[in-house]
């Protein structure tokens, strides 16, 4: 049933736009594509109106390419720069009111479980740091506390990029931004730690310095959310426009931060580790010290 919707009715093949013919013949459906295959298949997201050098766009493309089951996935987005890319995305996606994304995703996941009890339907939230950690923080935390089977991805550009550069809870201490001229005077929120405390069974902190890592962690997170409980991925995605840097410099910044305070961190519960090992997604004993309690 699910794959049937990726096949074109023979009566209409001659009138389908090329894009859809390519998606049907060379897309990622049931093809188990991953980040390393980028450039060799028809992607679900191609054009987008985000700025040149936008690391959020880079992360978005990476994440979409790593979806374990794109034909059975619904992505919930929220207001912010990321929402500008969603209209081009060739799989189901919902734009939630700013901040409501985890509540919308919770309801959606529950509805899908009722409607398709024998099928996997992955629900993934992808939203900015403002949506996840500030205005939607209540929704984010409570979806975790309730143990919803959803994955939450935060695009952490440490700023409200879409509205011109206000500070967010994720902006580091002391940072001056376009619309935060006196510098931030409290700490960056430690959302990965909150996630663990609130019951996320898999948590990863990654950056665009390593896109392969983003893909692996995201896949792990989606599989764990499907079987076990809420999962969280936080991706550092610097915004060249607000930081007033050349597009080409933005990944260098991500690499620099990855050596400083944005180093890769991964936590998984024992249950998740067993699941991922038994499904072949990871090799045994990959647990970082983060994971040990």
């Amino acid at each position: 049933m699910s794959l049937a919707i990726t096949k074109i009715n023979p009566a209409f093949v001659d009138v389908m736009p090329q894009e859809y013919l390519d998606l049907a013949s060379d897309g990622p459906f049931a093809a188990d594509k991953s980040v390393k295959d980028l450039g060799t298949f028809k992607e679900l997201i191609e054009e987008h109106p985000l700025c040149a050098g936008c690391n959020l766009a880079l992360a978005f493309r990476t994440l979409i390419s790593a979806l374990p089951c794109p034909e059975d996935t619904v992505i919930v987005g929220s207001t912010g720069c990321n929402s500008l890319a969603f209209p081009q995305l060739a799989i189901h996606n919902v734009h939630a009111l700013f901040g409501n994304q985890n509540a919308v995703a919770s309801g959606l996941k529950r509805g899908l479980k009722l409607r398709f009890p024998d099928q996997n339907k992955d629900v993934v939230v992808m939203a900015g740091d403002g949506a996840t950690a500030d205005i939607g923080f209540d929704m984010t935390m409570h979806s975790w506390i309730r143990g919803e089977n959803i994955t939450t991805v935060m695009f952490d550009n440490e700023i409200y990029a879409n509205t011109g550069g206000q500070e967010s809870g994720m902006t580091p201490f002391g940072t001056v931004r376009n619309m935060a001229p006196t510098g931030k005077n409290f700490q960056k929120m430690n959302v990965p730690e909150f996630a663990k405390q609130a019951g996320c069974v898999y948590v990863a902190k990654v950056s665009t310095a390593n896109t392969a890592k983003i893909g692996q962690c995201f896949r792990n997170a989606v599989l764990a959310a499907r079987e076990i409980g809420p999962t969280y991925i936080q991706i550092y995605t610097p915004c060249p426009t607000n930081l007033k840097m050349k597009p080409a410099e933005s990944v260098a910044l991500a690499k620099k931060r990855a050596k400083e305070d944005y180093a890769f961190e991964e936590y998984m519960s024992e249950e998740v580790e067993n699941l991922l090992v038994s499904s072949g997604a990871i090799k045994p004993k990959v647990k970082k010290e983060e994971g040990k309690k």
Binding site: A4, I8, N9, P10, A11, F12
Partner: peptide
């Protein structure tokens, strides 16, 4: 356009037959 069940395929053929009969375009 997408559900290639027998029913959908038959439906597709019928739509094409009608459109051919009246000289209509088919724009998906």
């Amino acid at each position: 356009l997408w559900r290639t069940t027998d029913y959908a395929q038959e439906r597709g053929k019928l739509i094409r037959e009608i459109s051919a009969e009246v000289g209509a375009k088919v724009i998906p």
